[in-house]
Amino acid sequence: MREEGFSPSNFSELKEEFTYPAKKLKILKKVEELMARVINAEKVLNEMKEMKTMTREIRDKCTSFSNRLDQLEERVSAIEDQMNEMKREEKPKEK
């Protein structure tokens, strides 16, 4: 700022000197706000990746459990078939 002092002719220059830091401060605040939003978005993405991994693990465990249940049902069915066969064989012996 010049040492001329205040006059209506240099008012716009004086106004610009005070306005520029305010504009700069607004820009910095906006940048900080955007950075905070980016950081939050990164956190959300990381949490979503963890949830996706957990979901995949749960799905795999459910698939494994389902396969084991199918095997168990097959074994029970085979045992029932054997028991029915044994009952059929015993009936003629009883007569």
Rank of each mutant, 00 (worst) to 15 (best):
K52A: 01
L72V: 13
E16Q: 06
L34D: 07
R56L: 02
E3M: 12
K23W: 12
V44I: 15
E94W: 12
E17W: 12
M86F: 10
P21C: 01
K30R: 14
L34I: 14
S9G: 00
E57I: 15
L14T: 09
K30E: 03
D70Q: 13
I39F: 08
E32M: 15
R59W: 00
L69A: 02
R37A: 04
M83S: 11
E4N: 09
S7I: 04
I79Q: 11
M35V: 14
V31K: 09
M86E: 15
S12F: 05
A22N: 07
F11G: 01
K24H: 03
E50F: 02
T55Y: 02
R37D: 07
E90K: 12
M1A: 06
K52E: 02
Q71C: 04
Y20W: 06
L34W: 10
E4F: 00
P21S: 00
F18N: 05
R59L: 06
D60R: 11
L69W: 08
C62H: 07
E17G: 01
T55N: 05
I58D: 00
F65Y: 15
E94S: 07
M51V: 05
I27E: 02
T63D: 04
R56I: 05
T53F: 04
A41H: 11
L45F: 14
M86D: 13
P8C: 06
N46E: 09
E94Y: 09
K43M: 06
I27S: 02
G5A: 00
E74I: 07
E32N: 14
V44F: 01
P21E: 08
E80Y: 04
R2L: 03
E32F: 09
M48G: 01
R59Y: 02
K93E: 07
I39T: 13
S7V: 04
K30F: 13
N10V: 06
E32A: 12
V31M: 10
E33C: 11
N10H: 05
A78G: 03
I39P: 00
P8K: 14
K95I: 14
K95G: 01
T55C: 03
M1C: 04
R75F: 00
D81S: 11
D70R: 14
E85C: 05
V31R: 05
K30Y: 10
S12L: 06
S9H: 12
D60C: 04
T63I: 11
P21M: 06
E80N: 15
S66T: 09
K61L: 08
Q71L: 12
L69C: 01
V38F: 12
I79W: 03
R2V: 08
K87L: 13
N10R: 08
N10P: 00
Q71D: 05
K43S: 01
V76S: 06
E32Q: 15
N84S: 10
D81F: 04
L69G: 00
K23C: 01
M86R: 14
D70H: 07
E16P: 02
I39L: 10
E3L: 14
L72T: 15
T63Q: 08
Q71R: 14
A78W: 04
P21W: 13
K91P: 02
F65L: 13
P92H: 05
I39M: 07
E42H: 12
E13R: 13
D70L: 14
A78E: 07
D70E: 12
V76H: 07
K87A: 05
E89N: 07
V31A: 05
K91E: 14
R88H: 06
E80T: 15
E50L: 05
V44M: 04
E13A: 02
E16H: 02
